[in-house]
């Protein structure tokens, strides 16, 4: 059976990047490579940082993903919603491109009769349920994030619960930035067992720098490496078939 794999980068941060490459540009690059970048911004109550939140939106937009800005206590629900919506969006995007090829360049799903679209949605839902998902999680662990890390951990465990309820396979890996010695540090390599992240956050460094751009760059590298090793890539960017 042929199974599609959806590849996502999930970035969880609380503010502005201040070191290295521009994260918006890096997100654009990720999109070109076939990975969608979804961003969750965490706000402190009573302290809505406009600049940081604009960056969150811009990164997601450039990365072809979804974004949301929430208080830490709403993190769990948001992380799973954003991930889910982004998956549907990715599949929808692929279906849309297929339709353009069949119907001609200027026509999209929206140009189909509403009733036909309904049938199409069934296909999109089915694919979203059965597709494999590779999700690379990038967590901002700069000083201001320190008290939010328990919430982040809780949200990621909750995400894994939602994803495990699908019938497709899921693989996660976890990186934090800034790392102890380098800009980005690996906390967990690819695994289907998200539960192993309990404790992964224990040994974190606190630092004022937030190298979001370099973190996304590392995420692209890690994703690409896995893609080359495990699968025979083809021209469909987000979505590739592997004989299984």
């Amino acid at each position: 059976m042929n199974k599609a794999t959806i590849r996502q980068i999930l970035l969880i941060t609380d503010g502005c990047s201040n070191a290295g490459e521009d994260p918006v540009a890096m997100a654009g690059l990720a999109k070109e490579e076939g990975f969608s970048v979804n961003v969750i911004g965490i706000m402190d109550e009573g302290d809505e940082d406009e600049r940081g939140m604009t960056e969150v939106e811009q990164i997601a937009k450039a990365g072809g993903g979804m974004s949301d800005v929430v208080y830490a206590k709403h993190l769990s629900h948001t992380v799973q919603m954003v991930t889910r919506k982004a998956m549907t969006q990715t599949i929808y995007g692929v279906v849309n491109r297929e339709i353009q090829q069949i119907l001609g360049a200027n026509r999209q799903v929206e140009d189909l009769e509403p009733e036909k679209r309904e049938e199409l949605m069934e296909v999109v839902d089915e694919l979203g349920e059965t597709a494999n998902l590779d999700i690379l999680i990038l967590v901002d662990t700069s000083a201001s994030m320190k008290n939010k890390i328990p919430r982040v951990q809780e949200a990621l465990l909750d995400l894994s619960l939602s994803l495990r309820s699908r019938s497709g396979e899921n693989h996660f890996c976890l990186y934090s930035f800034p790392g102890k010695r380098e800009e980005v540090e690996r906390l967990l390599s690819w695994t289907p067992e998200m539960d192993s992240l309990k404790g992964a956050f224990k040994k974190l460094s606190s630092s004022g720098v937030t190298p979001t751009g370099p973190a996304i760059m590392e995420a692209i590298r890690v994703h690409s490496k896995r893609m080359k090793r495990g699968f025979t890539g083809d021209e469909t960017a987000y979505f590739e078939e592997s004989g299984m």
């Binding site: 549907t88 929808y92 799903v109 929206e110 509403p114 679209r117 309904e118 949605m121 999109v124 839902d125």
Partner: peptide, 9 residues
């Protein structure tokens, strides 16, 4: 529009 399709279904 995909949310509409899915809810109508």
């Amino acid at each position: 529009s995909m949310s509409v399709s899915s809810e109508v279904r």
